[in-house]
């Protein structure tokens, strides 16, 4: 069986600056994969390339066997890839509920609906009429995750969802994520700065260094030493 998502020799550029140097990676159906690495290592670029926000070679990203590297973001989304972007990036002129509804813009069939998202994040139900950006950081992150879930994705990509949140809130957010994976078989890619957290919540991990994969393997088998060696690119 081939992987749900597969990248081969994926490269990305910002003008003359090369951000990714041929990434080979895969994610299986229902698998949880963590991306770790220093700032600027190319983790976010990797996710936005998959999501179709930056153009790549068609064959360098394959999803469920279909080459999607050259597809624009709207078409990639329709196939069932959702991104919780770095910094949340909620729509400020939309209410909480409208932000969630935007996530369902594709009308993909699946288990997620407004009711299910409010069940997962009860705090949002009380604030559904409020402007999304009036919420606390943790609640905004819940909106961002809920918005991605509303797309009923087969692959959910989360970019630094713990950034700037209180530890208790981080726990809550990751607990919700774990439910999402185990109950619905959604594949997940998580970018996470906290290495312990990343290892604990994932099946496998890739460590990015200067736009390349410097280490990969089963999360349980990666030692702290190996990760820190890879992290700092020795």
């Amino acid at each position: 069986m081939s992987a749900l998502l597969e990248t081969s020799a994926l490269v990305a550029y910002y003008g003359d600056f090369q951000a990714l140097f041929g990434i080979d990676a895969f994610v299986d159906e229902g698998e949880r994969v963590a991306l770790i690495g220093a700032n600027g290592a190319g983790k976010s670029t990797f996710l936005t390339s998959i999501a179709g926000l930056r153009p790549s070679e068609a064959q360098s990203v394959r999803f469920a066997g279909v080459p999607i590297g050259a597809k624009p973001a709207a078409e990639v989304a329709a196939l069932g890839i959702a991104l919780v972007p770095e910094g949340r990036r909620l729509f400020p002129s939309l209410t909480v509920e409208e932000n969630l509804l935007m996530g369902a813009f594709n009308r993909r069939k699946g288990p997620w609906s407004l009711e299910r998202v409010y069940e997962l994040f009860p705090a949002l139900a009380e604030k559904k009429g409020a402007p999304a950006t009036s919420l606390s950081g943790g609640q905004q992150q819940m909106v961002a995750i809920g918005r991605a879930l509303m797309a009923n994705p087969r692959l959910l990509m989360c970019d630094e969802i713990s950034l700037g949140l209180a530890p208790a809130v981080v726990k809550e957010v990751y607990a919700a994520l774990a439910v999402v994976c185990s109950d619905h078989g959604v594949s997940v890619i998580v970018v996470e700065q906290d290495i312990e957290l990343a290892r604990a919540m994932s099946d496998r991990a890739y460590c990015f260094t200067h736009g390349s994969v410097s280490l990969s393997g089963k999360s349980a088998e990666l030692t702290r030493e190996a990760i820190s060696a890879a992290y700092f690119g020795v």
């Binding site: 179709g52 926000l53 973001a73 709207a74 972007p85 729509f91 002129s93 939309l94 509804l101 813009f105």
Partner: peptide, 24 residues
């Protein structure tokens, strides 16, 4: 309306709206 919601979303953040499947 759904159309109007998409109008406001695109106006806020075109890139993120395209991630939701909006063909801008």
């Amino acid at each position: 309306t759904r159309l109007g919601m998409a109008f406001r979303a695109v106006s806020d953040d075109r890139e993120i709206a395209s991630l939701m499947g909006v063909r801008d």
